[in-house]
Design a protein around this nucleic acid. Sequence first.
DNA 1: TTTTGGTTACACAGACCTGTGTACTTGGGG
DNA 2: CCCCAAGTACACAGGTCTGTGTAACCAAAA
Lengths: 188, 188
Amino acid sequence: MASLQKKPDMKERILETADKLFYLQGIRAIGVDTIAAEIGISKRTLYNHFPSKDALITAYLERRFVLPPPSDKPPAEQILATFDSLQRRFSAKEFRGCPFVNAVAELGAEDKSVRKIAVAFKESRRLWFRDLLAQLGVADAEGLATQLAVLVDGCIAQDLVRNDPSMARAAREAARVLLTNAGVKVAD
Amino acid sequence: MASLQKKPDMKERILETADKLFYLQGIRAIGVDTIAAEIGISKRTLYNHFPSKDALITAYLERRFVLPPPSDKPPAEQILATFDSLQRRFSAKEFRGCPFVNAVAELGAEDKSVRKIAVAFKESRRLWFRDLLAQLGVADAEGLATQLAVLVDGCIAQDLVRNDPSMARAAREAARVLLTNAGVKVAD
DNA sequence: TTTTGGTTACACAGACCTGTGTACTTGGGG
DNA sequence: CCCCAAGTACACAGGTCTGTGTAACCAAAA
């Protein structure tokens, strides 16, 4: 009966706001007070939903763990489209690098759970590349997938520092060459 | 007359220690007290050499601004050797990513002076690549230099997260393909 | 009506942070 | 021998942070 959603899911609202602030300004730079104030709730409410800031950080990263949905487009196109999508995100000025890399950089290697999520994310993207390459019949799909993953993180890091969306185009061009060299027919 | 250097350059000792702690544990994670305690000096002495923590951070990054020295080796070899050197540094376990990228990730984009140093460093490495490529007669030295810079930062970010030095080999292999594709004769 | 669960307001503990003030020591160079 | 620069010990101001304790509030369900 759609009761107009009287509870707009407080937990989700907290996560949305934490995401925005953690991502744009840094995890260590944002205190829980700031997050609560931004939503207009009391700090107590926040701690009723998350037992600690660490739990909130973990939930923030888990919410960022999103892979491209399955697609019917040709695999080579999907791969190159990754870089087009990155370029679009670079141009939107609320882009500030890879949240997983940033979290590991900020929190240090000693934070086991954060690093675990970050590794899982990087690996799952690499596997996404690998499966597409396997569909294309590429011999060394593993190796090439790793190289593509390197290109993705490379242009993200470069854009983070330089604010230059064309880094995605450079990475795309490199990816095109690598694909061609592996025997994949690529448009363009 | 070389008076045996009775003052082991307090400023440099502070910078050495700040470098180690900032780099390994994060700039925000380390307080000036911690640095002073690690050296065994008083916090007052530290503040007599650096007017603020910000000044110390800036000096830390400036000290990290080191480019490869000029070399007589063939340009293509120098380029590929970059990735071998990275792989060696990845294997040493005191490697924790690019200090400039990490600083920008930690301190946010609003910190103008830090970002300026980071951009300058990234650009100077790109120019180092570009000049070597120009020596090789590569047509689009600018574009290829950017792609190589992306590969460097990509494997650094991947190793930061995964702790996998082989990321440097993957980047090196990609670089080899890109060079070959640009008409450069490469050994191997 | 009564109960109950989510929320609020607010104070607080205990830690840590940057930066300063001040008086003391100490070891060489004039 | 005396002076002075460099360093030391130490307290402190004023801010921030995470996390908790407590009493009140309010709306909806029973």
